[in-house]
């Protein structure tokens, strides 16, 4: 019995959520006295691999073949399951990222494992029974899920478990997986990624704006505020429906659910569908000219005022603070 954590990289750099997953795996390892091994697939250099040790996991299994240099859902799932079997891992941990969401069910099915998706915290363990808390009904509620399955695949929500540094020397072992040609049936024609921006699902701070901004031409101040804070930008459903902003920025019940440390809502009234996707944010700031806006009821801090007046002032105040 051991724990395997799959750590995702983007073009050779591990994601923030990968370090969170490492810390999470390490903590479960300490709870259950199991060894933890990290699995890296694709081209990642030594410097980057050393970071795995920085977060407290010393054993790294590296799969680095030409064929596996780019993400392939079926092939990566086959590799993860293969490695899990080889090392006798009974808890397999992944990030609940866009790629992780596609991998986890396949890995679970291959290993006949229970799948716990979007774990919010460490499990409560009593004998063979593990209990996890996860968001349901688009964050309108939290469910406690119990499993006694011998093998478990667990995906960890980004931004819910803090990556903790714990310097450990690493040893890297190369692994040759068995993959079949049919696992490579998808051809990647293009990858479009805004590298200069903070990715919304992983962002610690999110600046989100709604119809109160009146039109797409007014998003300059939203982007400026986000840049100063190192934040990702987001929007409400009416805004993406109107084509002012891309669908990928829509947070809410039928968009992305986010749980950043700080969520700043500007000119968003706070319909129940929007609140569902953001209510698990740790701190919520609402800026709205309507004092009756429902969003104020779930906010920690609020400013009743016109966004066009308040946001530029906020930008100035932050600039001043930063020096």
């Amino acid at each position: 019995m051991s724990i395997l954590v799959y750590i995702e990289n983007i073009e050779g750099a591990f994601k923030k959520s990968a370090f969170e997953a490492i810390s999470y795996a390490k903590a479960i390892g300490e709870l259950t006295q199991q060894e933890v091994q990290a699995l890296s697939i694709g081209q990642v250099d030594e410097t980057e691999l050393n970071k795995v040790g920085k977060y407290g996991v010393g054993k790294v299994i590296r799969v680095n073949t030409d064929k596996l240099s780019q993400f392939q859902n079926q092939a990566y799932a086959a590799v993860i399951a293969d490695v899990a079997r080889q090392v006798g891992a009974t808890s397999i941990i992944l990030s609940n990222s866009f790629s992780g969401k596609g991998l986890a069910p396949r890995v679970a099915a291959k290993l006949e494992a229970a799948l716990i998706d979007g774990a919010l915290e460490l499990p409560t363990i009593s004998g063979s029974s593990w209990e996890f808390r996860k968001s349901v009904f688009s964050s309108k509620a939290i469910a406690t899920v119990e499993t006694s399955a011998a093998t478990k695949v667990i995906t960890l929500n980004p931004n819910t478990f803090e990556a903790k540094e714990a310097d450990t020397p690493i040893s890297v072992e190369d692994f040759q997986p068995s993959v079949q040609d049919k696992d490579f049936s998808i051809i990647i024609k293009d990858i479009v990624r805004a590298t200069d921006k903070v990715a919304l699902p992983e962002a610690s701070i999110v600046v989100s704006a709604g119809r109160g901004m009146k039109g797409p031409e007014n998003w300059g101040m939203i982007e400026e505020l986000a840049e100063i804070l190192g934040a990702a930008t987001a929007c409400s459903k009416p805004v993406s429906d109107a084509g002012w902003r891309p669908h990928a920025e829509h947070v809410g019940q039928t968009g992305l659910a986010v749980s950043p440390n700080l969520y700043i809502a500007i000119g968003i009234s706070g319909a129940i569908q929007h609140l569902a996707g953001v209510s698990s944010s740790k701190t919520i700031v609402v800026i709205n000219k309507d004092p009756e806006a429902p969003f104020f009821k779930v906010a920690d801090y609020g400013i009743v005022g016109d966004a066009f007046d308040v946001v530029p002032r906020l930008i100035e105040a932050l600039k001043l603070k930063k020096g």
């Binding site: 494992a113 229970a114 799948l115 716990i116 209990e131 349901v136 964050s139 309108k140 509620a141 939290i142 469910a143 406690t144 899920v145 119990e146 499993t147 399955a149 209510s279 698990s280 919520i284 609402v286 104020f296 009821k297 779930v298 906010a299 920690d300 801090y301 609020g302």
Partner: peptide
């Protein structure tokens, strides 16, 4: 393989400042 044992509503926030 797994079952939901319990549901809870998210903890309410304090009053807005």
């Amino acid at each position: 393989l797994s079952t939901i044992k319990q549901y809870e509503s998210p903890a309410p926030r304090g009053a807005v400042k």
